[in-house]
Structures are given as structure tokens and as C-alpha cells.
């Protein structure tokens, strides 16, 4: 009898828990909705406030977006839904109409994307640069140089462990372009194509004590945790410009073009550009991204 009652008690508790959760969720949604209504007089209320921003993992992993997006939302009333993928995937999303605006770094592909009519209103936003990092022991003997092509040639010749993003991302494309410049087809046991994001690749490179190409933002944000050192930097080949592109509303009428325009205007505005320049200074003593919108 006692056991039976326990069972009953348990079921009632379970049901109560579920009810409470349902109300809690409903409550949260309400809370989220309210401030927008209250703020209605100072901030514009766009017709369609949902804006899908497809961007590269580097902007997300570096923390830049977390820092500046709240400003965008507060000023324009849009709600930015950030989808952080590789540049390649971001542009695929634009091509299939699954994103409204893109913030990517793959200049050649961007131009192609615009030329094919998928994107309009492309603007330069900022740039950062890549560096080649590797183990302090430096088995390829390339530390301190500023020639990326020579460095990769050395890595390949010495068959030192190298990790490639291998995911069609802007960083991956950059890496491939350097191999191309070095006229090397990287294959072999030393060349590891890992198909993961920058932060994951960094962690793996550290574990495997291998070289990899990394953007400065991700490097600075994580370098405290790992033992890899900067080996080669400063080569012009290693510069990495970011562009913002609106997805062409003529291709997909459901695209939130107004939102995309608002985002573009906001990110190339002097105030936002100043925000970008500030980002990272207090923490790393240097800017992670250099604004260059014209």
C-alpha cells in the first residue's frame, strides 16, 4: 500500500514538474517579448525583425559578434540570428536563400557570388590576418620568417605535421592558395585534413604539436590555453579581408532585405567601425580586426 502511494506521489510530482516547465517556458517568451514593446518609442520596430546572419566561425569564435551584435539590435530593433559556419557554407546558405546577409572572408568567392547575382551591396568591412603557428621545437626550422610560401615549402619538405581545416572555409581556401603559390600538392601522412572549425583545429594542432594556419583573432583568443607559438606572420599573402553582402531579394522574395540593408549600413557606419577597432584591445593589447569600410 505504501509503495503504491509512493508511485502515485511520484507521478503527481512528474506531472507538476512538466506543468511548471511549460509555464516557465511560456513565461520566458513573454518576458522576451515585453521589452521590445516597451522600447517601441525609442527604437524602430521593423516589420520582420528576424535577421539571419551567416558568417564564418572566426567572427563567432573570436567573440567579436557577441561584443557588437547587441549594439546592432539595440539601435535597429532587429534580432540577429547568427549562423556561424565556414565561408563556403555561408555562401551556400546565401545561394539557397537560407540567410539574409553574409559576413564572410573569401574575396574571390565573394566576387563570384555577387557576379552570379546571388548577392548585392557588397562592402568591405574589416580585415584581419593569418599567421602560421607551430610547436616551439619548430621541426621545420621556419620560425621568425615572414614568407608564407617558403614556410609551407619547408614544412612539406621536412614532412612536419601540418593540420588543414579541410572544410572549404575561408581559412582553408587561404591555405590552399598559399600551397598553390608554392606549387605544392600537399599529401602524405604529415598532412592532416581535419574538417573542423578553427578553434577545434587549433586544439588538435596543439595536441599533435603540428603547424597550422590560423586567423589572428582565434589565435589571440585561445593562445593562453595552448603551447603553440607564432612562427610566421606579416606576409601580405596572409591578409584576410572580410566583406558583408546582402542576399539578392530578387532571387528569394522572402529574404529580409530591409534587415540586411540595416545591418550593412550599421556595420560600415563610423561608430561600428570604431567598435570593431576597439575589440580585443583591452584584452590582448592589439586590435583583432582592422576596420576598413569605405
Amino acid at each position: 500500500m505504501k509503495k503504491f502511494r509512493n508511485h502515485k506521489l511520484l507521478s503527481i510530482l512528474l506531472i507538476l514538474t512538466m506543468l511548471v516547465s511549460v509555464f516557465a517556458i511560456a513565461g520566458c517568451q513573454k518576458e522576451e517579448a515585453e521589452p521590445q514593446q516597451q522600447a517601441g518609442d525609442s527604437v524602430p520596430t521593423p516589420e520582420n525583425p528576424q535577421l539571419k546572419l551567416a558568417t564564418t566561425t572566426s567572427t563567432q569564435d573570436s567573440g567579436l559578434l557577441d561584443e557588437i551584435i547587441p549594439d546592432f539590435e539595440a539601435k535597429t530593433g532587429y534580432k540577429a540570428e547568427v549562423i556561424a559556419v565556414g565561408s563556403g557554407a555561408a555562401m551556400e546558405m546565401g545561394e539557397s536563400g537560407d540567410a539574409d546577409v553574409l559576413l564572410v572572408h573569401s574575396r574571390a568567392a565573394e566576387d563570384e557570388f555577387v557576379a552570379a547575382g546571388f548577392g548585392i551591396d557588397r562592402h568591405d568591412v574589416m580585415y584581419n590576418d593569418f599567421l602560421i603557428i607551430g610547436p616551439a621545437a619548430d621541426p621545420a626550422g621556419i620560425k621568425g620568417g615572414d614568407d608564407a610560401v617558403a614556410a609551407l615549402t619547408q614544412i612539406s619538405d621536412s614532412k612536419s605535421v601540418f593540420l588543414s581545416r579541410g572544410d572549404d572555409s575561408g581559412t582553408h581556401k587561404k591555405e590552399l592558395s598559399i600551397w598553390k603559390a608554392a606549387e605544392i600538392e600537399p599529401t602524405g601522412d604529415w598532412y592532416n585534413s581535419v574538417g573542423q572549425g578553427m578553434a577545434d583545429t587549433y586544439r588538435m594542432a596543439d595536441e599533435m604539436q603540428g603547424y597550422t594556419l590560423i586567423d589572428r583573432a582565434t589565435y589571440l583568443a585561445n593562445k593562453e590555453n595552448y603551447s603553440l607559438e607564432s612562427i610566421v606572420e606579416g606576409d601580405e599573402l596572409l591578409f584576410n579581408p572580410y566583406g558583408v553582402i546582402a542576399v539578392n531579394p530578387e532571387k528569394y522574395p522572402n529574404i529580409n532585405y530591409d534587415g540586411a540593408t540595416a545591418f550593412i549600413q550599421w556595420i560600415i557606419s563610423d561608430e561600428t567601425q570604431a567598435l570593431i577597432a576597439e575589440f580585443g584591445k583591452d584584452q590582448y593589447g592589439q586590435s583583432l580586426f582592422i576596420p576598413d569600410a569605405k
Partner: peptide, 20 residues
Amino acid sequence: NIQGKTRVLTTSIVLETRMG
């Protein structure tokens, strides 16, 4: 997910999806 070493079907799916 290292190509040719530790890449399996499920990680391939993740990668291909990420690449669009």
C-alpha cells in the same frame, strides 16, 4: 575527423553539411 585516418561516416556528414 582527420581525412584518411579517423574520418568516419558520421563526421563526414557533419563536415559535408558544414561545407554546404
